[in-house]
């Protein structure tokens, strides 16, 4: 019995992604032993920080059977408009930054929710439209200027570290406190998705929306909540990015949806909905971050990066879909 359980575990999507990561790390490590150092951990976690926040929201939306490509635009408009307000009125408050931006994110999320949950418009087209509206509004009404004069108090957050460490060459590596945001978020997501009726309802809707409705889930309300919450999380991601990068620009996150969707799908979330785990998503984000950050170490030039990442995504999605096709065709019990 335990052996079967182990075999099942060893062939889950998560496990396959984990093997890939291990193999990749070994390859990179052989090509360049510098990879095996603590500094890599810090660089990677910094690189993954924002992607993790976005991946968490995208994962939940995809599990419910939808998709959201509007979060980069929502992240930009909420963070950028709030920072403009902060600079204009000299409001140097982290809480205000997060709360006000979240409120804006909520508004755009509500538009998505209305279009998708209430009016049954295809999620891709609806969020593409909202993305265009948000992005156009930012650039047209708020301007294109980049700000790097973040007020002191808010800026101090980017210089607060959990711990730091100096390597033999004397270079100091520091783990930013902001990493706590995705960590807390993912833990909460894990608990909600796994241990609440609401969380299981998200899976149920993604598995069979009609059956979920019959079972008594309020499908419209749950989906509305998800898209609205997704707007809030997008804003939180945008604000965190602004603090982390210590500058705000009206469209620096545009195009991020590609990598995020890729990471989520490579992590085993089925694009058709109903399947996906927090662990898988974290691994997916990790895999893509390693590829993006360390290809140079194995001698692949930067210009090939996009291509190699694209290749990995195509293979990842290909494998996932072949596996699910296989399950669908295998003999039933």
């Amino acid at each position: 019995m335990n052996k079967i359980k182990f075999k099942n575990f060893a062939t889950t999507n998560e496990a396959i992604v984990a093997y890939t990561i291990v193999v990749l790390c070994l390859l990179i490590g052989f090509a360049n032993p510098a990879f095996f150092s603590f500094s890599t951990v810090i660089t990677l976690s910094r690189a993954m920080l924002i992607t993790l926040i976005f991946a968490a929201l995208e994962m939940v939306i995809i599990i419910s059977g939808g998709i959201d490509v509007s979060f980069p635009a929502i992240a930009c408009i909420s963070a950028y408009s709030t920072i403009k307000l902060i600079l204009k009125f000299d409001i140097d408050s982290i809480a205000f930054f997060y709360i006000f931006a979240s409120a804006i994110g909520l508004c755009f999320g509500a538009i998505n929710a209305y279009l998708i949950a209430k009016r049954n418009i295809s999620p891709l087209i609806a969020t593409l439209g909202v993305s265009s509206i948000a992005n156009g509004a930012t650039l047209a009404f708020l301007g294109t200027k980049e700000f790097s004069n973040i007020p002191d108090h808010i800026d101090s957050l980017s210089r607060s570290y959990l711990f730091s460490f100096t390597n033999s060459a004397g270079i100091k590596y520091q783990m930013t406190t902001l990493i706590l945001i995705p960590i807390v978020l993912l833990i909460v997501f894990f608990i909600v998705l796994k241990f609440t009726t609401f969380g299981r309802g998200i899976y149920a809707i993604g598995g069979d929306e009609n059956a979920a409705r019959i079972a008594g889930f309020n499908v419209v309300r749950i989906k509305s909540f998800l898209y609205m919450f997704s707007g809030v999380l997008a804003a939180i991601g945008g604000v965190t990015y602004t603090i982390l990068m210590r500058q705000s620009s009206p469209q620096n996150l545009m195009g991020a949806e590609m990598m995020v969707i890729a990471a989520v799908v490579v992590g085993g979330t089925r694009i058709t909905g109903g399947h996906g785990t927090v662990l898988g998503t974290v691994l997916g984000v990790l895999l893509i971050a390693i590829v993006q950050n360390n290809l140079v170490m194995v001698g692949i030039p930067t210009s090939y990066q996009t291509f190699v990442v694209g290749l990995i995504i195509v293979m990842g999605t290909g494998i996932t879909s072949i596996r699910s096709k296989h399950i669908a065709n295998s003999a039933k019990i």
Binding site: I67, V265, Y304, G310, L311, I313, V314, S321
Partner: peptide
């Protein structure tokens, strides 16, 4: 594989090849 995912990945792949 759903067309949306394929062509989204494809976009990345073709842009990547172009960049390369």
């Amino acid at each position: 594989i759903p067309a949306m995912l394929v062509t989204l990945c494809g976009l990345q792949l073709y842009i990547g090849l172009g960049l390369a």
